[in-house]
C-alpha cells in the first residue's frame, strides 16, 4: 500500500475582479499517493492551473485561497510565505508551461540550479554546482558541464524545459506539479519529455501532477485523471476507465475532439459552444448549455461529485448510456 503525499480538501480559489468575486476553483478534493501520476485535464479557464498555483502560494495578488492542502501534516494553504519557502522547491516543486520565459534570462543555468541546493540542502556553492551538473546529465543534456555555463537564450526550447525539470527535481521532491509542460514544445520533443517525466518520477518516487489539455499526453503516462470544468472537478478515475468508458458528457466530448491517427476523420468534432465565463456560470450544471444529454434537473440543480463505480466519481445526473452519436 503506497503512502499519501498530498491531500487536498475543499480547495477554493477566488479572485477579486471589477469589485466582484470570481470563483476560479471550487471545492476541489483529491489525494495523491507516492509515485503516482495524476493528470488534471480541462479547457483554458477551467481553473486547473490556478488550483495548483494556489497550493504553491503563487496566486496573483488579487487571489484568495481557502481549504486545505495537507503535505504530510502541514497545511500549505494559508501558510505564511516565509514558512512556505521551507517546502516549496524542496518537497513540492513546479514546472511551468513556457520554458522560454520561465528561466531567468540574466543568470547562468548553473546559478539557477545550484541556488536550490544551497537554499534547501545547505550545500556550498561548489558542491551545489557539481550536483546541478549531475542532474543536467540525468535529464539528458549533452555536455552538461559546458551547458551549465550557458544562459537560457543559448539553449533550445527542449533544452530549457529539461533544465526546468532538472531544477524541479534537484531536491527529489515528493510532489512535482507540471503545468502544461509540453505545450510549448515541438511534437517530437514532447514525446521525449514525457518519457523523461515517467522515468525520473519512477526513479525518485515523486508523485507527478500533470496539468494539461492534451489527452494524448494523459494517455501516454498518467495513472489517474481528474477532468475539470468551470472550476470544478466533473469526473475522476483511472485513466483507462475514463478513456474507454467516460461517464460525464464533457469527458466524452473531450475524447471525441482529440484527433486520432487510426481513424482519420474528415473533420474534428469539437464540443459545441464555448467554455463558460467564470463570472457568469450557468444555473444548475455548468456544462448544461453544451450538453446533449441534459434534462430538466440539470438546469435547476448542480450535480455533486459522487461515486460512480469502483474508484470513480462523476458530477452528472444522467444515468443512461453515453453514446457518441447523440453528441455529434
Amino acid at each position: 500500500m503506497s503512502n499519501t503525499v498530498l491531500t487536498v480538501e475543499d480547495l477554493s480559489v477566488t479572485f477579486a475582479l471589477h469589485g466582484s468575486e470570481v470563483h476560479a476553483v471550487r471545492d476541489m478534493n483529491f489525494t495523491l499517493t507516492e509515485g503516482e501520476i495524476l493528470a488534471v485535464v480541462g479547457e483554458s479557464g477551467s481553473g486547473k492551473s490556478q488550483a495548483f498555483l494556489s497550493i504553491m502560494g503563487l496566486l496573483a495578488k488579487n487571489g484568495r485561497v481557502t481549504g486545505n492542502a495537507m503535505l504530510g501534516d502541514v497545511n500549505l494553504v494559508g501558510m505564511d510565505k516565509v514558512k512556505l519557502d521551507a517546502y516549496r522547491g524542496k518537497d513540492i516543486a513546479m514546472i511551468f508551461q513556457d520554458p522560454m520565459t520561465s528561466l531567468n534570462p540574466s543568470l547562468r543555468v548553473r546559478t539557477q540550479l545550484s541556488e536550490v541546493l544551497v537554499k534547501h540542502r545547505g550545500f556550498d556553492k561548489e558542491k551545489a554546482v557539481l550536483a546541478a551538473i549531475e542532474m543536467l546529465e540525468r535529464v539528458g543534456i549533452p555536455e552538461p558541464a559546458k551547458r551549465s555555463n550557458a544562459f537560457p537564450h543559448e539553449l533550445s526550447g527542449g533544452m530549457r524545459q529539461r533544465v526546468m525539470i532538472a531544477m524541479a527535481l534537484l531536491c527529489q521532491p515528493k510532489i512535482l506539479i507540471a503545468d502544461e509542460p509540453t505545450t510549448a514544445l515541438d511534437v517530437t520533443v514532447q514525446a521525449q519529455m514525457l518519457d523523461l517525466f515517467k522515468s525520473l518520477t519512477e526513479d525518485f518516487g515523486t508523485a507527478l501532477v500533470l496539468i494539461t489539455h492534451d489527452l494524448g499526453v494523459v494517455a501516454g503516462i498518467a495513472d489517474r485523471m481528474m477532468v475539470m470544468y468551470g472550476g470544478r472537478a466533473v469526473e475522476k478515475g483511472k485513466v483507462d476507465d475514463l478513456f474507454y468508458d467516460p461517464k460525464h458528457p464533457y469527458t466524452l466530448g473531450l475524447l471525441h475532439s482529440t484527433p486520432h491517427i487510426a481513424h482519420r476523420a474528415a473533420r474534428l468534432d469539437p464540443i459545441q459552444g464555448l467554455p463558460p465565463s467564470l463570472e457568469h456560470l450557468p444555473k444548475g450544471c455548468s456544462f448544461n448549455p453544451r450538453c446533449a444529454f441534459r434534462f430538466e434537473r440539470c438546469l435547476a440543480e448542480r450535480p455533486p461529485l459522487a461515486p460512480a463505480g469502483e474508484g470513480r466519481e462523476k458530477a452528472c445526473f444522467y444515468e443512461g448510456e453515453l453514446n457518441y452519436e447523440k453528441v455529434a
Binding site: R88, T101, L103, N104, K119
Partner: peptide
C-alpha cells in the same frame, strides 16, 4: 514567469 519560477523554488 521567471520571478514566479524563482518564488516556486522557495528561495525567499
Amino acid at each position: 514567469n521567471y520571478v514566479r519560477t524563482a518564488r516556486s523554488k522557495g528561495l525567499g
